[in-house]
Amino acid sequence: MSDEAPSDRKQVGSDLIIPVLGIAYAIYYVYSVWEFPAEAQRSGFFLAGLLFLLCALFFLRTLLLALRGKAELEFLALLGPPEGRWRRLGFVALIGAYLLTVQTLGFTVSTFSFLFLGSMLGGLKSARRAATFAAIAALAGWLFFIVLLGTRFPLGPFEALMAQVMLLWT
């Protein structure tokens, strides 16, 4: 699944992220249960030990590769092919913005904005097509998730407006 490295040297930088994250969490976990009764600690200690062991073997393997000059510390492969890299990073930032604003904007407005900007960032050229797509999908989502299923997803200005319209109508 790794992206092919351009040179014959294996890019190992990004391969280290998962083990490092795992070890960091394992250390935090062990710290968090340090004063707990034994039954609450047992599996955590065992799993942390297992993870340490496996990661140690992995680091050793990487080190041996590096010593033989067959590895280079490189993280860029993680971001995929260079073409469109900034757009994809923009898409990740957009997901972050969605998380921050969804509670205020409510389902429909935030979904519309996300789909509009997301499809543009994804490579759709025409703003009009992006807007049409986002509007149809957001309205369909609103009808399905909010009106029909009554999920308790945050409501916002659009839902408030529709509520007023419904009140006037009935």
Binding site: I18, P19, L21, G22, Y25, A26, Y28, Y29, S32, V33, F36, P37, E39, A40, S43, G44, L47, A48, L50, L51, L54, C55, F58
Partner: peptide, 25 residues
């Protein structure tokens, strides 16, 4: 195996089954 062990470690998050004390949360 590292992926599986990481999953197991993350799965160990949450209240323990006996005393219901939250762990690694």
């Amino acid at each position: 195996l590292i992926a599986g062990a990481l999953g197991l470690m993350l799965g160990a998050m949450g209240a323990d089954h006996i005393y219901a004390t939250p762990r690694g949360t």
